[in-house]
Design a binder for these strands. Structure first.
Lengths: 265, 265
DNA sequence: CAGTGGTCTAGACCACACT
DNA sequence: GTGTGGTCTAGACCACTGC
């Protein structure tokens, strides 16, 4: 078993980090994968926060006592996982939902004509934000105990004066203590950016399950469509670092002027 | 402008290929990108066919007169584009829809309970296969002239005796000359594998646009659901090498026991 | 065993951003 | 100019495959 022991997260970083040893076979894991894990730890434990500049490849190479090329390969993978963004001449930054000029990185709904920019920003309306005891149907995708306290948010998004998305989302109450409709209403920009700045939770990845359903009375009213209109039901589990599920969301999408877009490869 | 001239696709390959020159700035393109393009050309022009073993990194490095590392980086990108598959100790192979043990690489419909393997293979039924004059709504996504001759295939897929997908697909008649319902019916395995072996067309990438619709009478009948049932409408444009669109497809999916799955990152 | 892809290193040079 | 990431090279060694 080869391994490198975790580095001293020394603030001034002259602190000698343990040397790397590359040993033989069983449970072999490439050095750059180990480096990737170490960097990942520093992302998780908040040593580098969303938007931050992380140390240069040279510095990291010195810190972990490996060659720059090895650090590079580790960072390459983190970049292709969208955990980190490289900018030539400037450095490598922790990815964030805040400054992604694209407004909603995880929203796959696009207007049928024109693009999202031309459509302008969504108008958001918080309908409610309350603490609830979690039904099993919500806790199980989140890996929580049934009965745990969750925060449930309900909101409507409108594009060009047309209400288009009605969604509920559930968050673990323990982590999102203090989240209120007022906070949500005051906040500008993507909700996931708020989660980063206020709760230290960065959403990294998500899984969506899509079905077609008919609008019930409640949905019909909020989305201003006849009862029975076909809608997309989009259920999402969003994950933080470490594949920890942190949000369950269910959206109903009108698709009379929009479509859900996906790329296969 | 730096460039490397295209190599002699010499069968025996001792043939000296032109040397690479890496010149200065304007319209700078990295060497490994140029190598990637050259390999791509060999994939397109059929020098290496789906399933084939391509030359080793050393051979390609010699052929293009660059270092192995440069070829490696080119192949890395091709592999992450799913155009090529690396197998340690064996070599690098051209990707193919034929031997992907996963039956349908581009189909995102999954059973709500269990997984696709446990569900068993789809039962396929070809309803029709005919030559049509293309309406603009089809030709435009395919980048063809309106009025061009297309082949239109209609089929139903059933999972566990339940008809679940009704789809139409359109293919350029010029490329798919000779495609018949009989050919399609006799063929085992993914349709895209047939396209590779019979027509030399490899589908590489696709874009899907998804909406929710209500079943009309025809759909309701084939899918054995009441008229008005909400269905997913999945429109797909599939591309070959070079981003050339080669297929337009429209599927109606029942989602009472299945869902469309997507991963966001 | 030889051949393939996979990892790691060390060093050189380029393109880009800021100061 | 200095520092950053980006490209390219050359060589060594490892892990996997099949003969």
């Amino acid at each position: 078993m080869n391994s490198i022991t975790p580095p001293d997260p020394a603030p001034v970083s002259t602190g000698a980090d343990p040397a790397v040893t590359q040993l033989l076979t069983p449970a072999f894991s490439p050095l750059y994968q180990q480096i990737k894990q170490l960097i990942l730890q520093s992302l998780q434990n908040g040593e580098w926060k969303p938007g931050d500049l992380i140390p240069s490849e040279q510095e990291l190479a010195a810190r972990y006592r490996v060659s720059q090329g090895t650090v590079r390969k580790a960072i390459d993978e983190l970049a292709s996982d969208n955990l980190v963004v490289r900018r030539q001449g400037k450095g490598t930054f922790v990815a964030t939902h805040a400054e992604e000029h694209i407004q909603y990185r995880f929203l796959r709904l696009h207007p049928d004509v024109g693009d999202r920019d031309s459509e302008g920003p969504a108008a958001r309306q918080i309908l409610s934000c309350k603490r609830v005891r979690a039904p099993a149907e919500i806790t199980s995708p989140l890996g929580l105990r049934t009965g745990e306290v969750l925060i449930q948010v309900t909101r409507v998004l409108a594009f060009q004066q047309t209400p288009t998305i009605l969604e509920d989302l559930w968050l673990p109450g323990s982590t999102f203590k203090g989240l209120t409709a007022e906070t949500l209403g005051r906040h500008q920009g993507p909700m996931y950016a708020l989660f980063e700045s206020q709760f230290g939770v960065r959403m990294v990845r998500a899984e969506e399950h899509i079905k077609a359903v008919c609008a019930d009375e409640v949905a019909a009213q909020w989305l201003q469509v006849p009862v029975g209109t076909a809608l997309l039901s989009v259920e999402r589990v969003a994950y933080t670092y470490n594949d920890t599920p942190m949000e369950f969301r269910r959206g109903l999408y009108r698709t009379d002027r929009h479509h859900y877009r996906n790329t296969l490869s």
